[in-house]
């Protein structure tokens, strides 16, 4: 059995899939997006919140976690909800995740992922859940490396792979002012989405959380995006939205 590290479990999570859901946040992420609003999710190991002195990150066995989640089985059943695995990047703890999922096969599960994961593992996980929320951030690889610390090549390959296996998919795009909301980037993302064989169930445009920087200090980190505007570029976003809807994509503005 593989243990996992969880940094939060949120009950009644509203933006993470259908029905009433519980979202499990697994600790650790291969990316370091500059706009990340959960800086405590980036490192895999537990760490102390310097402000509250409370430890962030709790170790679970797959059966402990499954048992904890199963207590809400009744609410999942009648609300057609379920469990969402988010992070950090849940696939970073692939073995733990797979073992936990194998104990929850009767419950609707969603994977919320950045897509950065070794492909064979990624496919297995995606096939083990009922729905994938796949984040797309920057189309240009250089910019992707600049703002997330990693190349987007693997991410895009994985997206293509899921598409080929016809995995039920939502694509989520964070609209970060001056970074992901530029006309160039949104155009690039449009081309990526357009190239998919299967239309995603939905494309979610996620607004930037202006409180994103709030938690950095608590973990001895620095938030760099202090000078970007609060609101994304309305013109380019509106154009992108129209582009998508005109091509019959189901879009949700968050």
């Amino acid at each position: 059995m593989t243990n996992g590290i969880v940094f939060d479990i949120k009950e009644f999570a509203l933006n993470d899939g259908p029905g009433i859901r519980v979202t499990v946040f697994l600790k650790g992420c291969p990316l370091t997006c500059k706009w990340c609003h959960n800086p405590e999710s980036q490192k895999h190991q537990p760490e102390t919140n310097q402000k509250t002195n409370r430890l962030c990150g709790k170790i679970y066995t797959p059966s402990e976690l499954a048992e904890h989640l199963r207590q809400f089985q009744d609410v999942f059943a009648f609300s057609e909800g379920g469990i969402t695995f988010s992070g950090g990047e849940p696939t970073l703890q692939a073995d733990f995740l797979m073992e936990t999922l194998s104990l929850l096969t009767d419950i609707h599960t969603t994977l919320d992922t950045c897509g950065y994961c070794e492909s064979s593992k990624f496919l297995k996980i995606a096939q083990a859940v009922n729905l994938v929320y796949f984040d797309l951030k920057l189309a240009d690889d250089t910019l992707h490396q600049k703002y997330t610390g990693m190349s987007n090549r693997l991410i895009l390959e994985n997206l293509k792979m899921l598409d080929e296996h016809n995995i039920p998919l939502h694509i989520r795009i964070p609209l970060i002012p001056t970074i992901t909301d530029t006309a160039d980037n949104l155009n690039g993302l449009f081309n990526i989405i357009k190239s998919l064989k299967h239309s995603p169930i939905r494309i979610d445009l996620l607004p930037y959380n202006i409180c994103a920087g709030g938690k950095y200090e608590n973990y001895g980190m620095t938030y760099e995006l202090t000078t970007i505007p609060n609101e994304p570029n309305q013109t380019s976003v509106q154009h992108f939205y129209e582009q998508l809807t005109q091509n019959n994509f189901n879009v949700m503005k968050g």
Partner: peptide, 23 residues
């Protein structure tokens, strides 16, 4: 208040109230 900024917030809150009855 963010409950109501989210997708289906009202619907999900109604389901939560049903859960309150159910238990």
């Amino acid at each position: 208040p963010s409950v109501f900024h989210s997708e289906d917030g009202i619907k999900k809150l109604a389901q939560l109230i049903k859960y309150f009855v159910k238990v």
